[in-house]
């Protein structure tokens, strides 16, 4: 990963990413460009390589071949599908995620997530939805250039899903670049601007979201949308 930016409107570029494990090719020459300030959706069936690609782009997994250019790790954040929560209070967990935040700002973020009354509650005792909200505001509070979200609303109820989507939209309006995976078609249509469809570790189609959902060009894309 380098801090080089290839073009003014492109914040991150992946070229020919290949990842093999135990003789199996998990990502096969994946190349993609993430537009600055966009919401890019990584779509695909289970095992297509969405989470792997997200982890590679964020630098959590090193690829066997290929290059990634984009903002430094310090300017990136990631929210995992299953939030990783420390054995601290809710407020202290947020402070751990964003050490530079002062108490007032932490309180304000918790208030926005309607969790200010849980500030002193053990973070691991929060519900799954609350933990996901906590992980999201922990990432947003750091104001990264690019935010990776791995199925951020999986297993969440309607209210929590709406909160996550609202926060994502607000971050996008503030200029943040967001790359997320999702299995929810309506959510993908609501949020997505660009779509990257993966199948068996390969990119099948890359297109603006409206065109992808209305007139997909690749047969696998049509098949995927038919089952979504």
């Amino acid at each position: 990963m380098t801090s080089e930016r290839p073009a003014p409107d492109i914040i991150m570029t992946a070229r020919d990413l290949t990842l093999r494990r135990d003789g199996v090719t998990l990502l096969d020459s994946v190349s993609a460009k993430i537009r600055h300030g966009s919401i890019t959706l990584l779509l695909g069936h289970n095992g297509a390589g969405k989470t792997l690609l997200l982890n590679c782009l964020h630098g959590l997994i090193g690829c066997d071949a290929g290059t990634i250019t984009g903002p430094p790790l310090a300017r990136q954040k990631m929210v995992f599908q299953k939030p990783i929560i420390t054995r601290r209070t809710t407020g202290d967990h947020l402070r751990f995620l964003c050490p530079k935040l002062d108490n007032a700002t932490i309180h304000e973020w918790l208030r926005r997530a309607e969790m200010d009354r849980r500030a002193n509650a053990p973070a691991r005792m929060l519900s799954g939805g609350e933990q996901q909200k906590l992980a999201l505001i922990g990432a947003l509070a750091a104001r990264p250039d690019i935010l990776f979200l791995d199925e951020p609303t999986a297993h969440l109820d309607f209210a929590a899903t709406r909160f996550v989507e609202t926060m994502v939209r607000q971050a996008h309006e503030d200029g943040m670049t967001i790359v997320m995976t999702s299995h929810n078609r309506t959510q993908a249509e609501r949020l997505g601007e660009d779509v990257i469809l993966l199948d068996s570790g390969r990119i099948v189609e890359t297109a603006p979201a409206d065109r992808f959902f209305s007139t997909p060009s690749h047969p696998l894309a049509k098949q995927y949308l038919a089952h979504l």
Binding site: N55, H58, G59, L60, L73, A74, Q76, K77, M78, F80, I84, T86, F96, L97
Partner: peptide, 20 residues
């Protein structure tokens, strides 16, 4: 095993990881 992805994502150095 539980925290490694989070620590890596946060860019924690060796000392900070051990401390955490």
């Amino acid at each position: 095993g539980e925290y490694a992805p989070l620590f890596q994502s946060l860019g924690l150095g060796r000392f900070d990881r051990v401390r955490a």
